[in-house]
């Protein structure tokens, strides 16, 4: 009973005397143990990347996905409990689908992000529910105007709009790097790919298991549709990123 929350951390519907909901904070903690996940809004689209730990040498590469399509022009990358995130992914797909069949237009990213925030928040209100142990980065490109946008939805149900952000283990270091990268407002997804690969390799903790880099984008290269970054492009970017890191290390 006498944990860090002195008994106030057992249910999501009891505040602690200092006004905190521990369960939600613990859920956020679960996100921080996860591999880094980042997304950036480039000039011409959105780029997602995820650091996936290879749990076993016998694991088939590409077997677990952490970036999902939501509809033709939107996707979502995950940090935290993958199984929990599936609820959000499938809810997002339902909302997008239903919106389109009723209102004929594609759901505006702001609207979908807000609805997902509400959905996530519901799981922080009832004793019978457990908050989601995951944070999602939801990115979309408007099919008409080609304007990209990016949102973060955390276990509390908060919705933030970002130009670029990272979640998970290496988020602090990654965010600093993203800030430097986004100093160039004209950068395209294709140009950013190698830098993102570099960030992911840089923030990867040597103590952790080997990792696989998963990347998806919505940009001219993918005909403004959500698609996985082609393997050869990703491989080249990763190789180049490693070279750059090595060169930097040699300078020091």
């Amino acid at each position: 009973m006498a944990g860090t929350g002195a008994g106030y951390d057992l249910s999501v519907n009891t505040f602690s005397p200092d006004g905190r909901v521990y369960q939600v904070e613990y859920a956020q903690k679960a996100v921080e143990n996860s591999g880094t996940s980042l997304a950036i809004c480039c000039k011409d689209g959105v780029l997602f990347a995820v650091e996936k730990f290879m749990l076993s040498k016998m694991l088939v590469p590409g077997t677990i996905k952490r970036i999902f399509p939501i509809h033709r022009h939107a996707g979502m990358s995950i940090a935290g409990f993958l199984a929990d995130s599936r609820q959000i992914v499938s809810r997002a797909r339902e909302e997008a689908n239903q919106y389109k069949s009723v209102y004929t237009d594609e759901i505006p990213p702001e609207v979908l992000a807000e609805r997902l925030g509400n959905f996530t928040h519901l799981f922080t209100l009832y004793w019978s529910a457990r908050p989601f142990g995951c944070t999602v980065l939801f990115g979309a490109v408007d099919p008409e105007t080609k304007v990209p946008s990016l949102f973060q939805i955390d276990p509390a149900g908060l919705v933030y709009k970002f130009k670029g952000t990272a979640i998970g283990k290496g988020k602090q270091a990654a965010k600093t790097e993203i800030e430097k990268l986004m100093a160039n407002p004209d950068i395209t997804c294709e140009e950013a790919l190698v830098h993102v690969a570099k960030i992911m390799h840089k923030v990867h903790d040597e103590k952790d298991k080997d990792f696989e880099l998963e990347a998806s984008w919505i940009c001219p290269k993918s005909n403004y549709q959500f698609a996985a970054v082609p393997n050869d492009l990703l491989k080249t970017a990763e190789d180049k990123a490693k070279e750059m890191i090595e060169a930097e290390e040699n300078e020091d």
Binding site: F68, P69, H71, N97, S101, A228
Partner: peptide
Amino acid sequence: GDLLDELDMTDFLQE
């Protein structure tokens, strides 16, 4: 037509 478009969408999401 709408039914089939929805089917095509599930195809797309399957990746």
